[in-house]
């Protein structure tokens, strides 16, 4: 079981990596807990989560090879 995590913008400034491989997490809550433990600065910024390119609002079960994107507030245009 391995999850692909993608980071963007301010989140990449914190993780210093644009993509991470995270093993053995069952759902997005577990993943976020782990990421915030590894990168405490994440707790101080706003971000949303997309699983396989779809925004999620609630804890979501993850499957092997799912892609979870950690998205800071959008600022296009």
């Amino acid at each position: 079981m391995e999850i692909n995590v993608l980071t963007f913008g301010q989140v990449t400034d914190i993780t210093a990596e644009t993509s991470l491989k995270i093993p053995d997490v069952k759902n997005t809550d577990e993943l976020i807990q782990l990421l915030e433990k590894t990168y405490p600065a994440l707790k101080s910024i706003q971000y949303s989560i997309a699983v396989n390119r779809k925004m999620i609002q609630e804890n979501t079960m993850l499957q092997n090879e799912d892609t979870v994107a950690i998205l800071p507030p959008f600022s296009g245009g």
């Binding site: 994107a69 959008f74 600022s75």
Partner: peptide, 9 residues
């Protein structure tokens, strides 16, 4: 576009 598209400046 401003609200929903994942683009960062």
């Amino acid at each position: 576009i401003k609200k929903d598209v994942p683009v960062w400046g």
